[in-house]
């Protein structure tokens, strides 16, 4: 296996090195490498440097296959902040790293599933864009669920 190193560039222009055989766990990167050899720097304009650092930490893990599942779960659990997780999930989605994306999205879903509406809006900084009339209409529709 080649020990070639790839360089990834985050949204804020920071550079990260990673061995190619580890980087290609990302299907997106694998395809890029396949297409043009990826000799130069691979820009990742949607991923900020903190998130990319996490992604690289994940890609560099050295786990036996049978412990991988647990590792991913723990990896995500240790980053319990919803905004961080969302960034991570989005990056994993963009880079097509399935296990990481699964775990991060699942973690977010687990966190928000018991939230009230207000808590969800607060955690994700979402404005309530509904009028009271609309709220009522929805309440009526799902009456049994309340």
């Amino acid at each position: 296996m080649s020990k070639k190193t790839l360089t990834l560039m985050s949204k804020d222009k920071q550079l990260f090195n990673i061995e190619e055989h580890l980087a290609v766990q990302s299907v997106t990167i694998r395809n890029m490498v396949k297409e043009d050899g990826a000799s130069s720097v691979i820009p990742l304009p949607r991923v900020d440097s903190e998130t990319l650092a996490l992604v690289i930490e994940y890609l560099n893990r050295q786990q036996a296959p049978e412990e991988d599942e647990d590792y991913v779960k723990k990896f995500v659990d240790e980053r319990g902040e919803i905004p961080t997780l969302l960034e991570l999930a989005q990056a994993a989605l963009d880079l097509d790293i399935k296990k990481l994306m699964d775990a991060a999205c699942m973690k977010v879903a687990d966190l928000i599933k018991d939230f009230t509406l207000e808590e969800v809006r607060e955690a994700l900084r979402i404005e309530n864009d509904r009028t009271p009339e609309e709220e009522k209409a929805i309440r009526d529709e799902f009456q049994w669920a309340f």
Binding site: C105, V108, L124
Partner: peptide
């Protein structure tokens, strides 16, 4: 990403999620 997160919600939570925005 929203799609990916929401599809992992349990249906009752998914029903509530409709009300977020």
């Amino acid at each position: 990403c929203l799609w990916e997160v929401l599809r992992r919600l349990p249906p009752p939570a998914l029903l509530s999620a409709a009300k977020v925005c």
